[in-house]
């Protein structure tokens, strides 16, 4: 196995904001590099600076600022560069709950990804009015700029049939997580063919459920990694993964150019 022969990517589960996929032909270092790039290298917009006009709510300006910073903002990465800012405004009078949906934006492309994030509950005679600058930065500087949520990977495991279960053996659960590769299709209760990628959730993460009364062994598949990626809504998972891979690639090019004679 070498990382230069091209990669094979197979999606197991895919939606706008979360995905599971298996990549083959990776080294552990490269898999981790992509994970780290998803967390720290792909920039997102996030509120970084406030001009508070009026705040008579029960929270201090700084606390409001923190909460606004954590609201995910949609980030069209093709149209902005790191360091660009967009101005947002919020003006709510109580009694009401100020939510992310009340935020006005100066640029329609950058707006709260969800409209139902509560900022602060305002009582009678309380008012919150402010202007905010959202800045495009990477997660290296502050966790609020991370686009990826709960990004992780594990080695892909393959099930192998050993034989019938020992009738008087230990009867503990055999737990696996994430995605497994089918290698004992004949013994599975579900319809399966060898080489299928199966979500462990589908059989309650317990191999005994899938292979009743059989002894099954799991082994790591060399060079195969099962990723789990979620986005906070700033952009799609696809965009996050592609940008992360791009970032790793551009660093490699930078290194090659730097050491070239």
């Amino acid at each position: 196995m070498s990382a230069g022969d091209g990669f094979e990517v197979e999606f197991v589960d895919r939606s706008e904001r979360s995905a599971r996929f298996v990549v083959r032909g990776l080294t552990p270092a490269l898999a981790n590099g992509i994970r780290r790039a998803m967390i720290a290298d792909v920039p997102t917009f996030s509120v970084d600076h406030l001009r508070v006009v009026e705040n008579s709510s029960v929270m201090f300006d700084e606390m409001i600022g923190l909460r606004l910073g954590l609201v995910p903002l949609t980030t069209p990465l093709d149209d902005f560069e790191v360091g660009d800012t967009v101005t947002l405004a919020l003006d709510v009078s109580g009694p009401a709950t100020a939510t992310s949906g009340d935020i006005e934006t100066s640029d329609g492309m950058v707006r709260p990804a969800d409209d139902d994030v509560p900022i602060i509950e305002l009582k009678e005679n309380q008012r919150l009015e402010l202007e905010a600058e959202a800045v495009l930065e990477s997660g290296k500087g502050h966790a609020k700029q991370q686009g990826g949520v709960a990004v992780g990977y594990r080695h892909l495991q393959r099930t192998e049939l050993v034989g019938d279960a020992d009738e008087f053996g230990d009867d503990g659960p055999q737990i696996v997580r994430g995605v497994v590769e089918e290698g004992a299709a004949d013994a599975a209760v579900a319809d399966a063919t060898d080489g299928d990628l199966v979500l462990a959730d589908a059989f309650g993460n317990d191999l005994r459920e899938r292979y009743p009364d059989k002894e099954v062994r799991v082994e790591d598949v060399p060079g195969a990694f099962a990723f789990h990626v979620e986005s906070d809504g700033s952009f799609s998972v696809e965009e996050l993964v592609l940008r992360a891979a791009e970032s790793v690639g551009s660093r490699a090019v930078e290194l090659r150019d730097a050491v070239a004679v």
Partner: peptide, 20 residues
């Protein structure tokens, strides 16, 4: 005071679900 906007550990936006 108000429900935290995101999960402290993983960063998922949990406050959206607080109302319901």
């Amino acid at each position: 005071m108000m429900v935290p906007v995101r999960c402290f550990t993983c960063g998922s936006v949990v406050s959206r679900h607080w109302g319901e």
